[in-house]
């Protein structure tokens, strides 16, 4: 009798009435003469009883679906659209914007030859014209604004153009004076360095600001959605 106790699976199935008649008769016959198996069975029965008593978790909200469920609700896209990630990206964009603005403000003013001179055209003009007005200024002043891009700074914006001209002193001075048309051509190239690079900083900052705003909006929306779902 002790050698052939009832296995757990048979006891468990007995509780659920899931033994065949023959199995059940065998098990019951054994139980009648084996206190150890009866204790096993009783412990299992009480375990099941406790499991059954576990409270049902009632949903706090409805899980109804709406008319059109966008396919992107699940999977990677949905996970990517989690508020923390969007907030992080927004923060990164905002931080980058600040960096660009700081770089803009801190960049050495008048360093036009690098092409990244971001300082105000007026300051540039003041310094440049004092340095090199004697030689080329008349010609530059007489020339029409070479590019609409220099429009907002007007005629003074042409002044930085003088610098590269100075950087090539080996060239014949008469030539530059004698042929104003070629001078205009020479003048035209540098503005494409200085004023546009001025723009890169400001436009970049504006772009980053807009990006940060979009990301923050998206994160708020995703946050509201998560709040609705919770």
């Amino acid at each position: 009798m002790q050698s052939d106790h009832v296995g757990t699976e048979a006891l468990s199935a007995l509780l659920d009435g899931h033994l065949s008649d023959r199995e059940r008769e065998t098990v019951e016959a054994h139980l009648a003469g084996c206190p150890a198996c009866r204790i096993d069975l009783e412990q299992l029965r009480r375990t099941v009883s406790l499991l059954q008593a576990m409270p049902a978790a009632a949903p706090a909200r409805s899980f109804a679906v709406r008319e059109a469920v966008p396919p992107a609700r699940v999977g990677l896209v949905h996970r990517m659209a989690r508020p923390p990630l969007l907030r992080a990206l927004a923060g990164a964009a905002a931080a980058l914007m600040v960096v660009v603005l700081l770089a803009d403000a801190a960049w050495p003013r008048g360093d036009v030859t690098t092409g990244i001179g971001l300082s105000s055209p007026a300051m540039l003009t003041a310094r440049e014209s004092s340095a090199s007005t004697p030689t080329v200024n008349p010609a530059a002043a007489s020339a029409p604004p070479p590019d609409a891009r220099a429009g907002d700074s007007g005629a003074p914006a042409l002044e930085p153009a003088i610098q590269p001209r100075e950087a090539a002193p080996g060239e014949e001075t008469p030539e530059s004076v004698a042929t104003p048309i070629e001078l205009i051509g020479a003048v035209e190239a540098p503005p494409s360095l200085a004023p546009p690079s001025l723009r890169v900083g400001q436009v970049g900052a504006v772009f980053l600001g807009i990006l940060a705003a979009i990301l923050i909006t998206a994160s708020l929306r995703a946050g509201r959605r998560a709040g609705r779902r919770a």
Binding site: A53, M54, A57, A58, A60
Partner: peptide
């Protein structure tokens, strides 16, 4: 805490918090 705790089985005793935690 588990939300909405209500034992729906009248046959069985209400679980103590400790037993419930052990079961979980």
């Amino acid at each position: 805490p588990w939300p909405d705790q209500h034992a729906v089985n009248p046959e069985t005793a209400v679980l103590s918090q400790e037993t419930l935690a052990t079961l979980e």
